[in-house]
């Protein structure tokens, strides 16, 4: 792939690649923008955008392509929205292999198709060699939030239940193992998945859900700290009931990571009134993407807005809000 004047032919090639694989009427219309009809019925529109940067680009269980679809679909879903359309913007580094790009585009197309959310507009830029990291993908999603649904962390109340939709830490550990070139006995796969169908099921039955969030970068710990601050409450979770694969635990131990801080790409955290928690849990478990869902704790009164975890040994550990990477601290 080249940049500059000689790249015009290439740009055309890429454009055709997208049209072929994303394949829909909006793209075929060859306009700079896509016009679509207003969705029927009432409710509110939701729009979310996310730029995807991941290294390595291909990992067990997925690649940057499907991740870019899932990430934005999930952001729309976490607002309670049903995603309708996506846009995709590519920033390619000069010299990026076309074969890799093709693989990524096919994966994106398939993810969009499975999710039922077409990519209806897009853009590509090529930057000089050394000014990018292979490929960056920005996706923006538009969706519709059904009437009566208004999710916000500020609605969280002491006494509410904290639920997660499944095993935590898979994505981050899969990426990290690959980056560290570690071959574990049990291969750990990224959990990347689109959660809007699970969310629709949950909200249809329990519209009282206070808020939802996908624990991506920073993991469960960061989401709970954000919730605690927004709701001016404390969060108490219980170590033994947090779903984590033994293989993920083992890998985290080796790598010195705390799985609570590790990224997920196909999980959500839900806060709901305690009296609806069991029903919600049953619903989630009945869905293929929520089979390992669990109630992991509750919201408590706490002027300090601490997130705390009752450990397997007793006592309560602080689940700090980290400013960045997990830095060593044992003196």
């Amino acid at each position: 792939m080249s940049h500059g004047s000689g790249g015009r032919a290439m740009a055309q090639l890429i454009h055709e690649l997208f049209v072929t694989h994303f394949d829909n009427d909006y793209l075929r219309a060859q306009n700079d923008g896509a016009c679509f009809p207003l969705p029927a019925g009432s409710g509110r529109m939701v729009m979310a955008t996310d730029s995807h940067v991941v290294s390595p680009l291909f990992f067990p269980g997925g690649d940057i392509g499907c991740l870019a679809v899932h990430g934005t679909v999930n952001d729309v879903a976490m607002a309670g929205g049903r995603p309708l359309y996506l846009s995709a913007g590519f920033i390619l580094e000069e010299g990026f292999p076309l074969a890799d790009l093709k693989r990524i585009v096919i994966s994106m197309a398939q993810a969009a198709k499975e999710a039922g959310v077409p990519i209806i507009t897009g853009d590509t830029k090529v930057v000089e060699k050394g000014k990018g990291d292979g490929v960056f993908i920005n996706t923006t999603g538009i969706g519709i939030v059904p009437p009566g649904i208004d999710l916000a962390p500020s609605k969280i109340r002491a006494g509410d239940a904290i639920l997660v939709s499944g095993m935590l830490g898979d994505h981050g550990v899969a990426i990290m193992s690959l980056r560290e070139n570690l071959s574990f006995d049990t291969a750990i796969q990224s959990d990347t998945a689109a959660l809007h169908d699970l969310v629709a099921t949950m909200l249809a039955a329990v519209p009282e859900i206070r808020t939802l969030r996908d624990p991506t970068r920073g993991g469960l710990a960061t989401v709970l700290n954000e919730f605690a601050l927004a709701a001016r409450c404390g969060m108490l979770i219980r170590e033994p009931v947090i779903p984590i694969r033994p293989a993920v635990n083992a890998a985290c131990e080796l790598l010195g990571l705390d799985p609570l801080y590790v990224a997920n790409e196909g999980k959500l955290v839900a806060i709901c009134p305690a009296e609806r928690a069991t029903e919600l849990l049953a619903l989630m478990r009945a869905h293929p993407l929520g089979a390992d869902a669990a109630i992991i704790g509750e919201v408590i009164e706490d002027a300090n807005h601490f997130v705390q975890m009752e450990t397997a040994f007793g006592g309560r550990r602080m689940v700090d809000w980290l400013s960045g990477e997990q830095l060593p601290r044992i003196c």
């Binding site: 131990e253 080796l254 790598l255 060593p328 044992i330």
Partner: peptide, 10 residues
């Protein structure tokens, strides 16, 4: 090297 951060301290 500090392989595994704080884990290495244990």
């Amino acid at each position: 090297a500090l392989p595994g951060g704080d884990r290495a301290a244990r």
